[in-house]
């Protein structure tokens, strides 16, 4: 893409531990915003810290990108939510508008999952890092299940995960999906330069999974029950417990609807 910032430098890799690790070292060596790493296979792809991200060879988009958002660092907690909007946009640009019926609605599950039919199609990881030049960046990782068949998923993931192929019957190559992702990053980039938390919040909520539903949320080993009413000032999950002040959760180990 001429004139485009994202993907000006792409590390195309075969099999790696994690594209996050590759880009982190590149950032320490001076790589700038827009630098991308894509791998055919990740041997220890990361999801949330204690969990791994299953990324088999050639079956999905396993990529990372360096971001250098503008604005105070306390607003950077909005970047993972912004990334969810970017991945949603990527998926929308892959599918024909007519194909995104209510059956195939793309939903964003707080804080970082991309769902279709209540199954996990993709995920996001964001790492806030600093190099020796005191420059700061977010290494954003995107995992998108494209071509797995149902039986390709390990049994423990089968009920909760799915690929675009398994759900919609459409095949897209990882390279093509990357091209669409880079376009979406470019298009949505103004929202983080500087970070526009109001607009990010508004867009994110318009695709939010389980908004206004009663949920049981495990956070910091404590279980909370309440209605998911929106986002807090830093992108927290706002949970309205009966007869109490709203709770603002910054992390979760599990979310279940109770209605």
């Amino acid at each position: 893409m001429p004139g485009s910032n994202f993907g000006r430098r792409i590390f195309q890799l075969d099999s790696v531990t994690s594209t996050q690790d590759i880009l982190k070292s590149e950032f320490h060596r001076g790589a700038k915003e827009g630098t991308v790493a894509i791998a055919s296979e990740q041997l220890s792809g990361r999801g949330r810290m204690a969990r791994s991200w299953y990324s088999p060879a050639g079956k999905g988009l396993w990529a990372s990108v360096i971001l250098q958002p503008e604005g105070p660092e306390e607003n950077w907690t909005w970047v993972p939510l912004w990334a969810g909007i970017v991945v949603e946009k990527t998926l929308r640009s892959l599918l024909e508008p007519g194909e995104i019926t209510s059956d195939f609605e793309i939903q964003l599950k707080w804080p970082n999952d991309i769902l279709m039919q209540d199954r996990k199609l993709g995920g996001i990881i964001a790492e806030n890092v600093c190099n020796t030049e005191e420059e700061q960046a977010i290494i954003l990782g995107v995992g998108l299940n494209l071509l797995q068949r149902e039986e390709d998923f390990p049994p423990h993931l089968r009920a909760r995960s799915a690929s675009l192929l398994a759900l919609t019957g459409k095949s897209f190559s990882p390279d093509y999906a990357l091209e669409r992702l880079l376009n979406a990053l470019e298009e949505m980039h103004p929202l983080i330069c500087p970070i526009d938390s109001l607009l990010i919040g508004k867009l994110w909520l318009s695709s939010a999974w389980a908004l206004n539903r009663k949920l049981r949320v495990l956070s910091g080993k404590t279980s909370y029950e309440g209605v998911f009413t929106g986002l807090g000032a830093n992108g927290e999950m706002a949970l309205q417990q009966e007869g109490e002040e709203p709770l603002y959760l910054t992390t979760t180990e599990g979310i279940q609807p109770v209605d």
């Binding site: 996001i124 790492e127 910054t250």
Partner: peptide, 9 residues
């Protein structure tokens, strides 16, 4: 320290 899926070193 992880907050809102952002892993802060």
């Amino acid at each position: 320290v992880e907050a809102m899926k952002l892993m802060n070193e």
